[in-house]
């Protein structure tokens, strides 16, 4: 009898764990307050007038802790003050971000699913991965941040003091450079195109994370590296890293002064990194307006802006149209670079 009881207990425990397994996975969602589960059962809103009446999800196609993820999570935190319903972030990772984009594309156009997107998801990734979506399927809501990709070197080990030194040296020598993006990735394509247009032979060392890239530069393992501010700042203070040029479309102001863009050397290798919030384009305008009003409040809140500043992120408060144009321009330039690489 006692045995039986104990067995029943174990079985119950096991069933509980089964339930726990079912909610596992690469999704990072916060617990939803009780009251919303009730209202979500009351069927989805037929009119957009009662929007929002349940939890809104932001899909992040990349892992926890990246720039887009961190900023999106901060938005959800600050938005609690301005939005009637909780907003949560879920990470749907894999296949260079196209899994998350595919999920956002498959979701209903009811305003309850947003996605953090970037330029390459439209301009580059579709060239290598089959995707169902196009730029027309999404409306850009708001920019999140800009990211300027820098060419960084260690003046102490390489002796390079400027980008001109590198161009000069590269004429007669092969260079090694570290990057955290593999083949088909944005950094990889742009930098390969850049080196071709400079007439320099350079081989990439693909490392797992940007911190490893910075470390490889600072410890003198590679000649150059591609990284974004502020990852290399601590080393630039020590003098073991120096940003000499940027792929961003224009010159970039950093903590250590202006970094010139590639155009100054007549090199056609432009890449403006950015993250933005997007939603399915057939979402009712009324809902898009409500979301924009919420984002206006969040972007004006010092809680949000101070956090970004503290983390060294460059807030990009661009409206939807501006983001759209930015991506369209990038699609043109990426087209050229991929052609250039394939002709080689």
């Amino acid at each position: 009898m006692k045995m039986k009881k104990r067995f029943a207990f174990l079985l119950a425990l096991a069933l509980m764990l089964t339930a726990l397994t079912a909610c596992g996975g690469k999704t990072a969602s916060s617990t939803v307050p009780e009251n919303t589960s009730g209202s979500s059962q009351a069927e989805e809103p037929s009119a957009s007038s009662d929007y929002p009446n349940k939890t809104v999800t932001i899909i992040c196609p990349w892992g926890v802790g990246g720039g887009a993820d961190t900023i999106a999570r901060k938005i959800t935190q600050v938005a609690e003050k301005y939005f009637d319903q909780p907003i949560i972030v879920e990470n749907h990772t894999g296949a260079s971000g196209t899994i998350g984009m595919g999920d956002a594309f498959d979701a209903a156009a009811d305003g309850y699913t947003l996605v953090t997107a970037n330029g390459p998801l439209f301009s580059l990734t579709p060239k290598y991965v089959d995707v169902q979506y196009t730029l027309d399927d999404f409306t850009m809501l708001r920019g999140m941040r800009t990211v300027s990709l820098m060419v960084v070197t260690n003046p102490k080990t390489t002796g390079f003091q400027s980008f001109d030194d590198i161009l000069e040296y590269g004429k007669s020598h092969k260079l090694t450079y570290a990057t955290s993006s593999g083949p088909g990735g944005d950094q990889y394509v742009v930098s390969s195109a850049a080196f071709i247009s400079m007439g320099i032979e350079a081989e990439p060392v693909v490392l797992g994370s940007e911190a490893e890239v910075v470390n490889a530069i600072a410890s003198g393992q590679v000649d150059l590296g591609l990284c974004t501010p502020p990852s290399y700042y601590a080393f630039q203070e020590e003098g073991t890293a120096l940003a000499v040029a940027t792929f961003y479309p224009e010159d970039v102001e950093t903590k250590f002064g202006t970094v010139k863009c590639m155009e100054n050397w007549g090199i056609d290798a432009i890449f403006g990194g950015m993250d933005c919030l997007a939603i399915r384009s057939d979402t009712p305008q009324e809902i898009i307006d409500k979301l924009n009003a919420m984002l206006d409040e969040v972007y004006a809140d010092p809680d949000f802006t101070d956090y970004l500043k503290e983390m060294g992120y460059n807030l990009w408060d661009a409206k939807g149209d501006e983001v759209q144009t930015f991506i369209e321009n990038q699609m043109d330039s990426m087209e050229r670079y991929v052609e250039l690489l394939e002709s080689k």
Partner: peptide, 12 residues
Amino acid sequence: VYCIAGVYSNEG
């Protein structure tokens, strides 16, 4: 059940 649920939920 655990195994299949675990593998599935990892990347859906």
